[in-house]
Each structure stands twice: as C-alpha cells, then as structure tokens.
Design a protein around this nucleic acid. Sequence first.
DNA 1: GGGGAGAGATGCCGC
DNA 2: GCGGCATTTCTCCCC
Lengths: 245, 245
Amino acid sequence: MQLEDYAVLINDALNRQETIVFGCHCTIRYSGRAESRLSHGDRLFIIKRDKALLIHQPHGSMPINYMKAGSTHSVVFLDGELRFKAVNGAAKESIEATISRVHFFNSASLQDGEVIELVGSERDMSDMLYSNPEMIEEGFTAASREEQTKYGFIDVFGTDKNGVLTVVECKRYGADLSAVTQLRRYVEKVMVSKGITKVRGILAAPKITENAKKMLEDWGFTFISVKPPKYLEDENKRQARLDGF
Amino acid sequence: MQLEDYAVLINDALNRQETIVFGCHCTIRYSGRAESRLSHGDRLFIIKRDKALLIHQPHGSMPINYMKAGSTHSVVFLDGELRFKAVNGAAKESIEATISRVHFFNSASLQDGEVIELVGSERDMSDMLYSNPEMIEEGFTAASREEQTKYGFIDVFGTDKNGVLTVVECKRYGADLSAVTQLRRYVEKVMVSKGITKVRGILAAPKITENAKKMLEDWGFTFISVKPPKYLEDENKRQARLDGF
DNA sequence: GGGGAGAGATGCCGC
DNA sequence: GCGGCATTTCTCCCC
C-alpha cells in the first residue's frame, strides 16, 4: 500500500461515516483557542462517525490534539506526504498534520446507542443525604435538594435541630479551598436574600485539606466526612457474604 | 480469524509494549472511585505502551471508560466470549469487558518522545501582563509574577499608579463567579498578611459573565478585557501582510 | 445560547 | 505524597 492510497481510503471512510483509526508518523500544528506545534513522532489518529477527532501520542491518557464533533476533515497527497486538515468552523479552530508514513489503518461502521449508567456521582451523594438527613446531623431536616432555588444551586438546603437555616455543599472528592469559598458564597447569598445573619454552612466530603479546614473554621462552618454511595460495591459485598454460606 | 485468537494477539502485543487498537462489540463494567455499567454496543479499545487504557464509543470526544497508565491488562477466552480485565492501583479500580465480536485489530510499536509546544495558556497571559504592565493599567508597576508568595499563587502582584497594592488574577477563558471568589480570597489574604485594608483586585480575562461582573463590582474590584497571546496567529498575520506586497 | 457547576475530571508544578 | 490550580478543559443541566 502506497502512502497516497491512504488519502483515498480515509476520504472514503469519512464519506461512509465510519470510525477511522490509523497509526502514523507525523508533525502537527493546531490553531484555535490556543496554538500548538508538535514535531516528528508516531501518533494514533481517531476520527469518529460524528467527526470528532482525537490524536494520541503512544503514552498518556489525554489526546495531544483534538477537535470536537462536527468538524470537517480532508486528506490530500502532496510532495510525497499526506496533508491532513481538520477544521471546526464554529469554533474557528484548525489542525494540520503532515503525515510521512502510515503504520496501520482501519475503519468500520461502529454502532452504539447505549448510555452509560454511573453510580457514585455528587448527585447520588446529595440524594443520599437528602433521603437520610441524619447522616448530616442528628435532628437535621432537609427541605430542598439540588434544586434551582433563588439562592442558587445549593446541594441540600434545610434546618438543623435548632431550626437554623443550613446550606450543605457536597463534594465527591477531597474538599479544597474553592469548595469552602463556594459554600461561603451560597451562605452569603441566603443571608442577603433572607435578610438574616445566622445561616450555617456544612461541607460534606470524604476528606478535607488542612488549609481548607482552617478557612472553614474561620468562617464558622462545619465539615462532615461522607463518601459517595456505591451500589455495585454494596452488591458485591452482599454477594460475597452470600457466597460465604 | 476466530474470536479466541484475539486473546493471544492482544496478550502478545501487551508483552511487546505495543500500542493496541481494536474495535469490538462488548459490555463494560467499571468499579473504582465510582461505578458504571454499559450494555451491548460497538466500542474502540486503545491500550498504550504505558498501559493506559481508553475505551471510546463511536461518538463524542471523551472516553466512556478509561484507566490510567501503569494498569495491568489481561484477556481470556471463556464460554465463547473474550473476557477483558484491567486493574489499577492495588485493585482499587478495575474494568471488566465482555467482548462478543472483534471488528478489527491492530498493534504496532509506536515511538514518540516529542513534547508539545503550546502558546496561549494562562501562564503566557500573565507573562505578557508582567512584561507589559501598561496593559493592566496606565502607571502600573508589576512586582512579582506567578510566584509562590506567602499570599498564595497570585498571577501578577504589584502597585497601581497611586502606590496601592494590587492583585491581578488572569483567566484565559471567560471569567465566572469562581474567578471572582478566587480573586477575593487572594485580596483578603494580602490584607490580613500585610495588616492593611486597602488592596485592589483586578480580574483580567477575555470576557466576564453578568453575575460575575456584578459580584466583582460589589467588592470594588476591576475587570479588564485581555486575550491570551497567540504567537502563531501573529506570525500568520505578519505573513499575510508580507504576502500582500 | 449563556451561565453555573461537576468530572471516575486530568495534569502540572511546588513544597 | 499532598496541595493548589489550570485545562484548546468537556459535559450536563437549567434558565
């Protein structure tokens, strides 16, 4: 297979809306929101049926260059090399690659309409706390859950055992300074909206950094250690127990 | 090629540290920080030489499941299907896929030691402002740039024409509420550290949301519209000018 | 389409 | 390793 033959192969596959994968030796230039150059090396190109483009180096998790779905791709053979060009008009972005060798190539009409089911998000965490307010604090009453209240996107909003309005902010990961400032912003908004000065803030997360804890305490807020729920893990544990018998 | 033959192919390629790509019909389960399930459909599997795993649906920019570099992968043929398993981090995370058909397969020893050159980051933006303080304000004097001052990671720190201490926070994208709270946090930290009450805050970004602008003004801070630098674009423009003659 | 916030965020750099 | 923060963040949801 000659290098120029891949131009036909790629353009045909693009027209057929196939998923395209090829490994090649190339240089790459990107221009758009930022700009980048990448000198000679082996990379993996992926073009999906929705015309999303991913260019990967042979290491690392993230694409080294990419373009969103709805882009326009073309390949021409010129001066003994393939000139690949991707353009996203809406985003005013473009990628140009000069390909001097193709190591392998494949394309196929992949079909997949499935949507992933994911458990353990922050939303699941706030659902859990809303349904089990005693996990927040003894005597806590949950009033609203991740609803667009006029106070903002508050995860859980309610009153403590003393009837004090309380904002609960959930983080599925370790809480940092920005989590505290976010909570602070919500608490201040509730205070201004309600015209009151006593509003509590609770940060619920698996853990919290030292600096964030200090800032939290400076503002009189409370930290509670909560992990996001994992149904499948619970299933596995139950299964393990059953298997034990 | 029989389905079971791919087990040998994949395991051999793993041992040779090749970059592996294959399209297949499968179901996927993930368990780790969160948990997920994905029912039958066609997907693209990528395993890199550093053992990073990416699983893509035939649409969208992001992998539907993934595992970081340094994972352990294995494939066995069982009950007429391929059982793929990836494990990482002392078995804290794992992906299991049941593959009922392989549409295509490729592996190759891709080599690439190049590092991308990228222009237009926030760092480039703060460099630009530090070197050209008149872009911030007439009469501005820049004292430090993105240094680990005892006040935190302040992008540009200096004094305005009246000698008032000023914190400049850069955003390469549109500034939002969290950008304002970040600036606020730095300003407050400088005020406490220096024991003074008059510290200015300037937010430098291409644009700012309406709510963020309101909060900024409530706090007496200033917004200036600055875009991140793009050398290549400048080059192109210069080239276009030259071509015009 | 803009705004706001999460993500199995990831990756980078500094201490 | 943790911490703090940018990212060509991307994606989703809601107004």
